[in-house]
Design a protein around this nucleic acid. Structure first.
Lengths: 230, 230
DNA sequence: GAGTGGTCTAGACCACCTG
DNA sequence: AGGTGGTCTAGACCACTCG
């Protein structure tokens, strides 16, 4: 029930900066305990949809879960907030391959045995290539993945819509390296230019199911932005 | 009360991987409602001290809030988990200066007027310099800060112990750049080597009070690690 | 089947903010 | 002073895990 309320609140079109109905009003309106309302609102806070102010009320966040350009969220999702023209070029459609011998993350036996769906994409902002991403997905529980094409060129959206898989968290290792010839070419940089290199592991709503990415970013124009708590 | 329980649970020395007493046991033991116990445990989950497993119990996290080397937490705090010898060299003790004209973050009027406490530190892992950090702190509500020296060379610990200020969150912009001569010298790299450059703003438990950092990382040896949710 | 965490109801008092 | 969110009590039923 508190999941429902959560979605209704934001689907119910509140403007940025609006004050939400108070917890008492919400509980009365939905015939629900205040504890339940609080639980729903707490979720919204955690996901940065709203802020709470003691004695004042709850305010709809001005930037709903914007995490900044090139953050861990899908590229298009994030970059739009900054009003950029964004394009994703699929350089290599998903194909089934075997895992590299020295894969950058330890894999479970099940993952190794299943083989690896590989794809390669280039992300551009305002026509300029800014991010080259190699993605590796264990071929587990994804029937017909190779037959479909990506929904809106978005991997996350495809997983969500077709397989009901949601991205829950990310671990990443970030380094600054000198671009090798091939990377430099793709990002339209000169060889040896400094680029960000990131290894990522995405945790999903399916227990034990992870996605892996290796990505290269040209940060001369746009920085990688994070924000996190605690 | 739930803050108290929170601390007692971990101060009460549970081993990594231990099962905590169940929520019912905890509530009985502390003469407290299960709702209150749950609130305390929820905090612990948020801070990655424990994991919960439905039907099984709550487990003490194997790596208590380890966020990886060079993560947003204080350097020493994080690096110790990786069993490295860690040293902080204070290159410039805290001094009061005026803000740079083109500061990397927009400042409030109050911040500008108060002036800026500046310090400069070099972090080393196993003798090798890995991170050069310039810190800028608005000189607001920090009496005698310049007179004391840092507690354990840790800025965060100093703020916590002396002024009861806790770090709550971080926003950061990350870029890969070529090291200029001075940076390269400090990090013992050759000029032009790729280094990570990060602008950070730390939010604190004091509303409206932020810390600012600009830092340069040599990532040839150690990567910057993150992990975050949602 | 017994125990666990997940969710919910129906109240209560408090500190805080704003008019 | 009145309303807000923060915290707490005292129950209840459920889905899940495990022996």
């Amino acid at each position: 029930m508190h999941q429902l309320l959560k979605k209704q609140i934001l689907a119910g079109e509140f403007q940025e900066g609006d004050l939400l109905p108070s917890e008492n009003e919400l509980s009365a309106a939905h015939n629900i305990t205040r504890a339940t309302v609080r639980q729903a609102l707490e979720e919204l806070v955690k996901e940065k949809y709203i802020y709470k102010h003691k004695g004042r009320g709850s305010v709809v966040s001005s930037q709903r879960k914007t995490l900044g350009l090139l953050s861990f969220r899908g590229f298009s999702e994030v970059a739009e907030a900054a009003h950029l023209t964004v394009k994703t070029v699929v350089l290599q459609k998903p194909v089934l391959v075997s895992w590299e011998d020295d894969f950058f993350y330890p894999l479970s036996k099940a993952e190794k045995a299943a083989g690896c769906i590989f794809l390669e994409r280039l992300r551009c902002a305002d026509q300029d290539p800014v991010m080259l991403e190699y993605t590796y997905i264990p071929n587990i529980g994804l029937p017909d993945f190779l037959q479909h094409s990506l929904v809106h060129d978005s991997l996350f959206e495809t997983l969500h819509v077709q397989y009901d898989i949601e991205i829950m968290n990310v671990e990443q290792d970030i380094r600054a390296i000198a671009a090798v010839a091939e990377t430099a070419r793709q990002l339209k940089l000169s060889e040896g230019s400094p680029v960000l290199h990131i290894y990522r592991r995405y945790g999903t709503s399916r227990k034990g199911f992870y996605l892996y990415s290796s990505l290269f970013c040209n940060t001369t124009q746009y920085a990688l932005s994070n924000s996190f708590d605690s």
